[in-house]
């Protein structure tokens, strides 16, 4: 609600009001520096916000109620709220000293307190879902980018989040392996009732799977709508420019 974020004097997000419904799949597109990634990072509480409050499921995420007023949340409160959010990164960020399976089990065992057996079952099921069960014993250094990203998705899902954030998850991948990652996300959309927010440069993919597409410009939502509306008949000049520039690049 009315969120602002700045790095020094640079305003990355300006008075942003942005709502995502439960189970909705929202894609965020826009030129670099438009604040797309920052939106996801503030939701994951990797960045603090300077102004405004973020709510998740009606409860404040960035702030907590203290004596009737909202104050910035402390680490304990954040840890409780963070359980409902998961995130995948552009650079995968798998733990290099653990195998694919250990990467997935780490959170459930250490954070959720599951038994090793339960965590293993849950992780193997997810690795199976992302098509990585055969590589469960491999360390990340032995996996391709697309394979690492699929393990990273399984790792995030193993925490059973209600909201998943995908931050340019295909940007670091070779063109021929992008499909294996997008297919996993596609599967999540059709088979699970997750709320998803995805920052992406894959316009075709965003168009295919989103319920809503938001075009960011200068830290604000310049235009948003269904994929059909936004890609089919964009209203704003900047949106048109951006979409035609992207089309030319392809």
């Amino acid at each position: 609600m009315n969120v602002s974020k700045s790095y020094g004097k640079l305003n990355v997000i300006e008075h942003l009001n942005f709502d995502v419904a439960e189970g909705e799949m929202v894609s965020i597109i826009g030129p670099s520096g438009s604040g797309k990634t920052t939106v996801l990072r503030t939701l994951m509480t990797l960045e603090t916000i300077n102004d405004g409050v973020i709510y998740v499921e009606g409860k404040p995420l960035t702030h907590m109620a203290k004596g009737g007023v909202l104050v910035p949340a402390d680490e304990r409160y954040l840890r409780r709220m963070r359980t409902s959010i998961g995130m995948c990164f552009q650079s995968f960020n798998l733990f290099p000293h653990m195998t694919a399976l250990q990467n997935c089990m780490e959170g459930p065992v250490q954070v959720l307190g599951l038994s090793k057996k339960e965590a293993r079952e849950r992780s193997e099921e997810l690795l199976h879902m992302v098509g990585m069960i055969d590589k469960r014993g491999q360390h990340p250094s032995r996996l391709s980018g697309g394979q690492q990203q699929r393990v990273a998705i399984a790792r995030a899902l193993a925490m059973r989040p209600k909201v998943m954030l995908f931050d340019e998850v295909t940007s670091a991948l070779d063109p021929e392996v992008i499909g294996e990652v997008t297919n996993v996300i596609r599967k999540l959309v059709t088979e699970h009732n997750l709320t998803m927010l995805m920052v992406t440069h894959q316009m075709g993919f965003a168009r295919d799977i989103s319920d809503r597409v938001c075009f960011f410009y200068g830290g604000k939502i310049e235009e948003q709508g269904t994929p059909h509306e936004l890609f089919g008949s964009p209203q704003r000049e900047r949106t048109k420019q951006f979409l035609s520039a992207v089309k030319e690049a392809v």
Binding site: E75, F89, N93, F95, H97, G107, A156, M159
Partner: peptide, 27 residues
Amino acid sequence: VPRGQWEACRAINMSARDTYFRIIIPQ
């Protein structure tokens, strides 16, 4: 140790202690 490793720990909601002793220090 790359910043992404800290962020990955945060994203799976790890405690500061586990982050250091299980992820960061071994690397």
